[in-house]
Amino acid sequence: MVRYIDGLILFVLNQMNGERTISGALHLLKGKKSSQTIQDAKLFQLSFLFGMQRTLDRSHIEESVLVLYQNGFLEKVSQDTYKVNEKGNVALEGFLKQHPFPPYLNGWKYHQITEVFWARISLFMQTLSHSVNNNMIFYPVIRDEQVQEWVRKHFPKKSEKRERIARSLYEELTQVLRKLPEAHARLFVLRLSGFHRTGLTFHQSCSTLHISNEQGLLFFYGVIHACITHTRDDPATFPILSSFVENKRIPVPLTASTRTTYSLLQKGMTFQQIMDIRRLKRSTIEDHIVEIAINVAGFSIDSFVSKQSQEDILKASNETNSQRLKTIRDHLNDRYGYFEIRLTLCKEGV
């Protein structure tokens, strides 16, 4: 495999098992917030890559698919739909061995707080670095007013405390970074600004490490997600890193319209009532419910699909070794609708 992006696309296509078009893969990597994409992320165990290549566009993915196809790694299933073949599987295995995914990467879970974490830590670090090196003259690397306000509020006032905080921040960061591959830690630290130098831009940091931007993005997010994961698991050991995500409860990531449907469900309304009140199509409400099932832990789907039906559907999925709705529906002789199958598959494993 010559390029990282090709390997990444090969991985995604393999997970999707020839059951989605390349648009599906593109939406997922770009992090499109549609019910379909969110369901796909769940169905194909691709949540961790959700939104992790936001700058990818259609021509990039088409190019990759072409390269993979010409290398004989893909079989064409139908227009824009490909399945990874035996040869492709071998290649993929080699790729993953050479480039394992960053261990803590979790795009879907953390995509809403990743940016703010970076903004806060980079400005806090810059300010602290200048302060403990007795030079408070600098241009902030982050212009966002809210972030500046946040740092101002959380910045220790006394100089002894600043030194203590600097040491603790160092300890916390090294604890996280040491568990990660050397190159990931290096890329992250290269991007930080301090009293002695300006941080590198994302692009510069990738060229310094001689890696592609696509690979660099996963390294970078991987480090941030590692920090966030540690603060979740053990806030007492990581008080400063925890403060960077403070007040940022990871919200249940529902799209706005789905949120409305969810609150109506919580008020005890039925499917039909919600359709009437919201004047939305049946299929739209169905999408909402699937989205809720994916994201709200403990949400029961039993009132939409009976226990027995769920068992039948899961059994059919196992027997056909497929997540494809049409295959399962055919296997069950059209006994269940797509909505029921979709909902069951999505809820599975939550």
Binding site: M125, L128, S129, V132, N133, E163, A166, R167, L169, Y170, L173, T174, L177, E182, A185, R186, F188, V189, L190, L192, G194, F195, H196, R197
Partner: peptide
């Protein structure tokens, strides 16, 4: 040109901490 050591030393420099302490 900034002379880059390893990330650990870079962080120490940035935050003015030394390992010895």
């Amino acid at each position: 040109e900034h002379v880059w050591m390893n990330w650990d030393q870079e962080l120490q420099l940035m935050l003015n901490v030394t390992k010895g302490e």
